[in-house]
Design a protein around this nucleic acid. Structure first.
Lengths: 208, 208
DNA sequence: TAGATTGTTAATCGATTAACAATC
DNA sequence: TAGATTGTTAATCGATTAACAATC
């Protein structure tokens, strides 16, 4: 897999969307689809879908389209989601607790394996399926020992950068940040942001 | 405000990010900033920030930069977030409950004013600050009566499109969709998506 | 005044789309 | 074979960046 360097990030960003749509099509009983059908569902041009996929190989057949199960498998390979990933969650307040309870992560291959909080009152408490909240002081060691590469940050904006720095120092390479603040991270570390208010603010521009 | 039609959507999408960073700078005690400082924090070029802002007017001063409180005010005007918005939430399962409890929406001007669920067992129950879950059968009337323009969908993927159709028929023009599925909506209706797993899948591509 | 930074134009860069030969 | 759809190239479109006059 020597293609990592060439592919635009914006293309990578669309692959999970394609994969999700394929899952759905399969669930609905389809076995085959086309760039046209997929594009119609997603509001994306068929040309773009074909172009995106062509970065990784020819997965379709002229005249018939794509076999869904095969394309799913290939996209999972490309995205490296054909395995289970261990994920650390830092911050177990309201938001962190909700995340810890959310089934959607484990269902799709992301297993939350450890929880951290800096509140001594919370340390030792159980959340959800028997996960015990650990002290944030132990975070670096736990991350290193278990070779955890992915973390979610659900602490407040004031502590998010500090937590990120510690996570990265311990070896984390991908961060999903729920704190409403931009993180500064070194080259090679990936950050994605979840801030629902940003999405709402983007839409109010068009209202009235 | 006759600029709505000309501005690229991608520019609109960055304005909330600028606004968030300005809030933060103000909180840290800054009174003035520059496109360079802002860009450094956000990982965006200063030229892009100046270009983006220039779509809406000249908010800075040569030599000194931008007065933060003034720029915040202007961006809030542009985005129409200098007021409170009423938001409906559909689906009060685990995820919906977490959203209903989350303070971040109200804190930033989005007031969740009504909850709907199709489970008769849940209807009538209170969630959070005295909000009562209403039947989804009453949704159209409540939305219309209160002139609600924004809704969040937290039902499962199977019901999301149907719920969206009903919301739109009742007058909703902006939807924040937490269901892991793409929605087909008519022209003039805006949809934004929250699916944290998509963000994780995007990052695993780069790992190892 | 000298230094700094804006707002804007023109140049560059990159992403999307149209079109079509290949082929199932 | 006829019809359909891919994979790919070239053309178009749009977004980002560099550069600088204006000016605080």
């Amino acid at each position: 897999m020597a293609f990592n360097s060439n592919i635009p990030d914006i293309v990578i960003g669309r692959l999970p969307i394609y994969l999700r749509a394929l899952n759905r099509l399969a669930q609905e009983g389809h076995e085959v689809t086309s760039s046209h059908e997929l594009g119609k569902r997603l509001g994306i041009s068929s040309a773009q879908i074909r172009k995106d996929l062509s970065h990784f190989g020819g997965f379709g057949k002229q005249g018939t389209g794509y076999q869904i199960s095969y394309l799913e498998e290939k996209l999972r390979q490309v995205l490296q989601v054909n395995r289970e990933w261990e994920v650390a969650l830092v911050g177990v307040g309201d938001l962190g607790t909700a995340i810890a309870h959310y089934r959607g992560f484990a269902d799709r291959g992301f297993h939350i394996c450890c929880l951290f909080d800096n509140d001594p009152q919370k340390v030792g408490k159980k959340v959800g399926e028997g996960l015990v909240i650990q002290s944030i002081d132990d975070m670096p060691n736990v991350i290193k020992k278990n070779n955890i590469q992915i973390a979610m940050i659900a602490v407040n904006a004031e502590h998010a950068q500090e937590v990120a720095d510690q996570l990265i120092a311990a070896g984390v390479r991908a961060i999903l940040n729920y704190a409403p603040i931009n993180l500064n991270v070194p080259e090679g570390v990936h950050v994605q942001y979840i801030d629902p208010v940003l999405h709402l603010q983007r839409m109010t521009f068009y209202l009235k």
